[in-house]
Design a protein around this nucleic acid. Sequence first.
DNA 1: AAACCGTCCAACCGCCTAGCT
DNA 2: CAGCTAGGCGGTTGGACGGTT
Length: 313
Amino acid sequence: MDVYSSADHHHHSNNSSNSIQVSEEEETMELRRGPWTVEEDYTLMNYIAKNGEGRWNSLARCAGLKRTGKSCRLRWLNYLRPDVRRGNITLEEQLLILELHSRWGNRWSKIAQHLPGRTDNEIKNYWRTRVQKHAKQLKCDVNSKQFKDTMRYLWMPRLVERIQAASSTTPIGASSTSANTTTTNAIGQVIPHMSINIGGGLINPSFTPDNSSTAASSDSFVTQISPASDLTHEYYNYPVNTISNQDYYQVNQISNQPDSQTTPSGYFNPGLDHFQAMEEQNNLNQWFDSGDTNDNLWNVEDMWFLQQQLNSM
DNA sequence: AAACCGTCCAACCGCCTAGCT
DNA sequence: CAGCTAGGCGGTTGGACGGTT
């Protein structure tokens, strides 16, 4: 519906004389769909640079884009926006996504608000392609208690370990213990941090597995992360992995929730001995260790063992 | 070489809601 | 108040791509 009915169509070409007979296609103002061309991107960026964003339907018309307002909005927010980050999800981001998802469920936009530069779409894609894949491999439902516990007591602590390990070998300029509120990235820009406390209380896992979809009242348990808006001037074809985890986000303090039952050991819940035993028996590094920030598939032994554990829960 | 397969992600769709008339 | 529209959100899809057979 949106723009389709509009008669006052504009053309991005400049033939104002319009002497050419209007084709049927132009008459009905056929809207383009599918992938955006470089020209369309350029048009949209230019228009927004001059006129700002918002009022997407009229924006699409005025800019001469044969697109719906929705399509323009999506393209801008998910791709063209200067502060959008694409590329590998860092360990810190993975951890945050897992934690926030355990809290809020599929509230992607809400989760995205806490990951500067990341879009809801990207987080959603990450979840579906990475996290759900593991659930599938374990033959359990992503929403099941079993899988949630697996994430909480295995995956997330593992991420914490890896983050700690990474931060202990952090190069100069990105020390892990600092309480600073900014850090400097690889190209010398000062950027704000994502707030994750690794060594101390971590992100507060006061998570109860069965209420994941109920919106918690405490949205502020993670301090709002401000977008690293000055980070990606080179946003088109932004190269992945050019900025290391350590450079990008500095491990930092987080405000603990008042009602927290969290111990300083974070996710390691003393009541879950079998998980800890499991940790000792199995080298689950296979999950994480082959790539930089990639998750990895279970190896056969891990899969088998974990399956036994899950079945006995 | 080519057919097949799995993964990833940009972009779409439908639904919902807030705001305006 | 109802009706309409734009914007926002979550779910889904299709095509590109890389790896494997």
